[in-house]
Simulated scan of single mutants.
Amino acid sequence: MTSTPVRKVGPADVAPNRRRGGDVRILLSPRTVGSTSGFGGSLTLEPGEYVCEHLHPYSEEFVYVVGGRLRIRIGEELVDLEAHDSVMVPKGVKHRMVNEGDERAQVIFHLAPLAPRPELGHVDTEFLPGRSDEPAPPVGGVR
């Protein structure tokens, strides 16, 4: 028996966020399911789309490509991923993702541990034109 209610969350249950590029959906988080150790979701990048460079000061990021291809720059290293490949981005390391292929890239990601406060969890080092004033995806909440 669990004290935390079990909740199924699908892409239609959360708003897409395009502030940093692509279609980011935070599916499992303190806000959506009451998680206490990390959060995860999905990313869809159409051909030519990218996620702006950023870093996570408190969290490692685990990236798994479900379909398509993805190029990720982690620090100064370029890593090409295709379906069923995965990679970990270490804490505090700048990274940027781009779909240089000709088909949609579908990605699952997970970050852990959580930052002490949601606003400390993500540091943007690049911005999409006209998108820097959009709110960040809701991740945190009362824990």
Rank of each mutant, 00 (worst) to 15 (best):
V142D: 13
L43D: 00
F127V: 08
V87F: 01
G121E: 03
V9P: 15
G41K: 05
P11T: 00
N99F: 02
D124A: 12
M1E: 09
T125V: 14
G38C: 11
H84A: 12
R71P: 00
R104I: 01
G41R: 02
P116S: 07
V142F: 13
L120K: 07
H84M: 12
Y50K: 10
F109K: 05
M97I: 00
S3V: 08
G130T: 01
D80T: 09
H54S: 14
S59E: 11
P11I: 02
A115Y: 13
C52R: 13
P90C: 04
G38A: 02
L120W: 12
M97D: 02
L55Y: 11
G22L: 04
F109M: 06
E49L: 04
D13R: 00
L128M: 15
V79R: 12
L27M: 07
E60C: 12
H122Y: 09
G22D: 02
L128D: 12
E126T: 01
D133A: 07
R117I: 04
E134P: 01
E76S: 13
L120D: 14
P11C: 05
R18H: 15
M1P: 03
H84Q: 09
E134S: 02
L78T: 09
G68P: 10
R31E: 03
R104T: 04
A12S: 15
R7P: 02
S59M: 10
E77V: 08
G22E: 07
V89E: 01
E82Y: 03
P138K: 10
F109P: 01
G130H: 03
K94Q: 08
P138L: 04
M97G: 07
F127E: 11
L81V: 07
L128C: 08
S37E: 09
P116H: 05
E119T: 02
A112F: 07
G130C: 10
G10E: 07
V66A: 14
E61S: 11
T125I: 00
H122W: 04
T125W: 03
L70R: 12
P5S: 15
V14M: 13
H122D: 13
E53M: 08
P138Q: 01
Y50S: 14
L28H: 12
V65E: 01
N17Q: 09
S35V: 01
N17Y: 09
F62S: 14
